[in-house]
Design a protein around this nucleic acid. Structure first.
Lengths: 197, 197
DNA sequence: CTTTTCGCATACCATCGGTATGCGAAGGTA
DNA sequence: TACCTTCGCATACCGATGGTATGCGAAAAG
C-alpha cells in the first residue's frame, strides 16, 4: 500500500487533529503534552511541527473543527423550522444541546478563550455560530419583531448566556431537569425581547 | 525597622498577590513564569511556595481578591438604589462597568475558568457575585415581578450574558457607544423578564 | 537514472513548575 | 543574657515541557 504524498499528508494531519481533540477535551489543554499527542498519533514532534506552528496552532485547528460541527447542527435544527422566530428558538436550543457534549465544552468554551485569546476566539465563534445569531436578530429588528437598536451587543449577550448555561449544565450534580429548566428560561429570555402586541 | 514575623509574612504574601495580579492581567496566566513573579516581588521561589501550593494557588488568591473588589462595587451600586428592581439594574450595570477594567477581565473571565476549572471558578463567582443575583431573582420570582420557576438557570444565563458582554466591550475596536448600547440591551433583556401588567 | 522535493524522524536545547534542604533571625524560656 | 525552638525564606537542584535545527529516505519531477 503506497500512498501519494498528498494522501499521507492529509492522513497525518487529520490524525493529529483527532488525537489532539480527544486529549484536549479529556484532560484540558495545559495538561496535555506534545509528547503524549505524537505518541498516540503514532508520529513524532517533527510531524506535528511540520503541520502546525506549535501546540496552540494544533489547538486552533481542533477548535475550528469543533465549532464547525456545532454550527452545522445548529443550522440543521434551525432549517427544520418554518417560522423565523421558531428558527431562532430551535437554533438556540440546538446550540445548548450540541454544546452539552463534554468533548465540545472544554475546548470551545473553557480553554478556547484562554489559549487563543478572547479576540481570536471570538473571531472563530463569530465565523461559525454567532454570525447566524446576529443575522437572525438583524432581521427581527428590521421587521419590528424585536425592538430596534444595535444587534451586536444583544448578540453577545445571548451568545454569552448560552455559553455559560451550557457549562452550568455540565456541572457534576446537574440533572436532566436542569436542561429543561435552562431551555425554558432561555425561551423566556428570548420571548421577553419580542415587542408586545 | 524590625518587623514582627506576622507582619513580614503578611507583607510578603500581599506583595506576591499584587505582583501576580499585575502580571497575570498583563500577560495572561500561561505567559507568566514563577521566576518573573518572584523577581518583581523581590523574593525567591522558596517564599512563593511557602505561602502558596503552587502557581495555580497563587492565581486563585489573585482571583478571589479581584472577585471581592468587583462584588463590593456591585453591592455598593445596588445599595444606592431604593426600589428592588432598580437595585437589580444598577447592580448589573455596575458589574459591567467594574469588569470593564482590563486588569479584571483576563483574570476573572478568561484565565479563571481555564486555570482552576469551570466548577471551581463558578464556586468563587457564586460566593462573590452570582449569589446576589440569584437572591434578587428569587425575591422577584416570589413577589411575582418575574415569572415563577427555577432561578438558578436564569441566574447563569444572565451572569454569562454579562460576562461575555464585558469581554466584547474590551475588544480593541470597541468605542464608548458600545458600552451604552450594551447597557441598553441588557436593560431590555431584564425588562423582558418582568411580567406584563 | 538523476535530481529535487518534502514529509517526517532524530537529537538537542532553554525554560518551566516543582522539591529538598539549609540558614538566619524572630520569638519563647530560664 | 544565653539558649533553644520556630519559621519565613533563600539556595540548589531536578524532571518534564514546548520548541528548534538538522538529517534521512521515499515520492515526485526531469
Amino acid at each position: 500500500m503506497t500512498r501519494t504524498r498528498a494522501e499521507q499528508r492529509e492522513a497525518t494531519r487529520r490524525t493529529l487533529v483527532a488525537v489532539g481533540r480527544r486529549l484536549f477535551s479529556d484532560k484540558g489543554y495545559a495538561a496535555v503534552g506534545l509528547a503524549e499527542i505524537v505518541r498516540e498519533a503514532g508520529v513524532t514532534k517533527g510531524a506535528l511541527y511540520h503541520h502546525f506552528d506549535g501546540k496552540a496552532a494544533l489547538f486552533r485547528a481542533v477548535l475550528e473543527e469543533v465549532q464547525q460541527e456545532v454550527a452545522t447542527r445548529v443550522a440543521a435544527a434551525a432549517d427544520a423550522e418554518g417560522d423565523p422566530w421558531d428558527q431562532l428558538k430551535a437554533g438556540c436550543a440546538a446550540f445548548v444541546r450540541a454544546a452539552a457534549d463534554p468533548e465540545v465544552q472544554r475546548i470551545m468554551l473553557v480553554d478556547g478563550p484562554a489559549v487563543l485569546g478572547w479576540n481570536e476566539w471570538r473571531a472563530i465563534d463569530e465565523a461559525a455560530s454567532a454570525r447566524h445569531l446576529a443575522e437572525a436578530l438583524t432581521a427581527f429588528a428590521e421587521t419590528g419583531t424585536i425592538m430596534p437598536g444595535p444587534v451586536a451587543p444583544l448578540t453577545r449577550l445571548l451568545s454569552g448566556a448560552m455559553n455559560e448555561a451550557v457549562l452550568w449544565l455540565a456541572r457534576p450534580e446537574s440533572g436532566p431537569d436542569d436542561l429543561d429548566a435552562t431551555l425554558a428560561a432561555l425561551s423566556r429570555l428570548l420571548e421577553g425581547l419580542r415587542v408586545r402586541t
